[in-house]
Design a binder for these strands. Structure first.
Lengths: 231, 231
DNA sequence: GGCCAATTTAAACACTTGTTTTAGATGCGC
DNA sequence: GCGCATCTAAAACAAGTGTTTAAATTGGCC
């Protein structure tokens, strides 16, 4: 091999991360993965014993990093807030790191997009692992932080609120990904950009702007639905 | 043919509506569609000139009905409110009919699920038509109604608010569809039902409950972000 | 250098996909 | 009954899938 700076295994994982970011599992063929990595087709099966395992490995390699980043950011926001951290900071932390991880970071982008997509599908072998290792811990941490910020909230109320926040986050992630996937002259793309000029801005600006909107929208909603009893 | 109560064309359309409701376009094969309809495989190509056209026909047959139902419900809510219809009624109408159409009606369920899914994918030939005929008019009507209810809102502000509402709606639709697609003993399913007991209830109850939550959440958010100037 | 295991390669395999072909059945006006 | 257009049927087609095979190459170690 002329370029020995990476092993075949690593080249495959990197190429897969890139391809799976923009197309779903079934839409990317093994031959295409191998070609993008510049390796032989059979390498996928030799090193990973099948496409399924390979995909699982691609996801697993990155998403724990992203999860820990999210948890760390949340923990920081909680710690900075003292005994009763501000709700605003908690939601902003969650939404911000999630959006950033899903759209702006080169490393995590693929995986987060995968998760956001797989969340919305029946899913094969992977979904149990993704749920247990990624979604459940983040959900638990988010939930705990919110109850610290608003101790009067019941657990089931918190669950509803989180669902509304996550729904918005996913929607804006998908909206961006869809927009990016449309060709330059597409009329739908034009329509979207007209209604949402922020789509045309660089991804970092998009993330900041969306984070701000979701945070303010959600905090206002929570304060309105569950007003704090001011002594 | 022994059962002449439906033509081959109609049987195909009905079967397709059913199958496309739970699996995406590429996941359902022509052979399977034909088998489910009890017709020959080649019938799809004979009557519809290809799988793509067939799919487009399946969607088009129903989604205009759903669109008109949504617009009618919204128009009614606006009309009932007089000069300045209550925001609550408008959002409840939109969210309610959308959720109901997507989850509870046997006829529209498939198509709405398709749209909710296709909204979040690159999409092939269909997406332009879906956007122009379905999403754009509904968006315009929703947007107009909201500006009637809150005349002080600018158009771009309304767009942001609608995005947050729609994001929630899609999320709760997908959550239900995902839950229904999971097998009885699945641990993810158990986790979801534990955090959201309403998932275990009949779909009508689910729709009502979700509609209420999204409406109250969103109205509180809008009132909090853009308080009305009370003279 | 020579051996052996690990890796890479090109080819083939078994299977599924959407579509086309070719022949046959059916229904209807005359 | 005949003729004709419509429809259906089974089979074949070409292309693509994930995977396996079997030979070739590589790289380290004695």
């Amino acid at each position: 091999m002329t370029d020995d700076r990476q092993t075949t295994k690593e080249r495959l994982l990197d190429a897969a991360e890139r391809l799976f970011a923009e197309r779903r599992f079934e839409e990317v063929s093994v031959r295409e993965l191998a070609a993008a990595a510049g390796v032989n087709t059979a390498a996928v099966n030799y090193h990973f014993q099948g496409k399924d395992n390979f995909f699982a490995e691609v996801v697993r390699r990155r998403f724990l990093v992203q999860r820990d980043r999210t948890l760390a950011s949340l923990a920081e926001a909680v710690a900075a807030g003292g005994e009763k951290p501000p709700l605003d900071a908690i939601i902003r932390s969650m939404v911000g790191t999630y959006l950033h991880g899903a759209l702006a970071t080169r490393e995590g982008a693929g995986v987060m997009a995968v998760i956001a997509r797989e969340m919305h599908t029946s899913g094969g072998t992977h979904h149990a692992a993704v749920f247990k290792d990624m979604i459940a811990p983040v959900f638990a941490a988010f939930s705990g932080a919110m109850r610290k910020a608003r101790p009067s909230l019941r657990q089931d109320e918190v669950n509803w609120l989180i669902a509304s926040v996550v729904g918005q986050v996913h929607h804006f992630i998908m909206r961006r990904l869809k927009w990016e996937s449309l060709p330059e002259g597409d009329e739908v793309r034009a329509f979207m950009a007209h209604a949402f000029p922020v789509l045309a801005e660089p991804v970092e600006a998009y993330v900041v702007r969306i984070t701000d909107h979701i945070t303010r929208f959600s905090v206002a909603a929570i304060d309105g639905m569950h007003p704090e009893v001011t002594p």
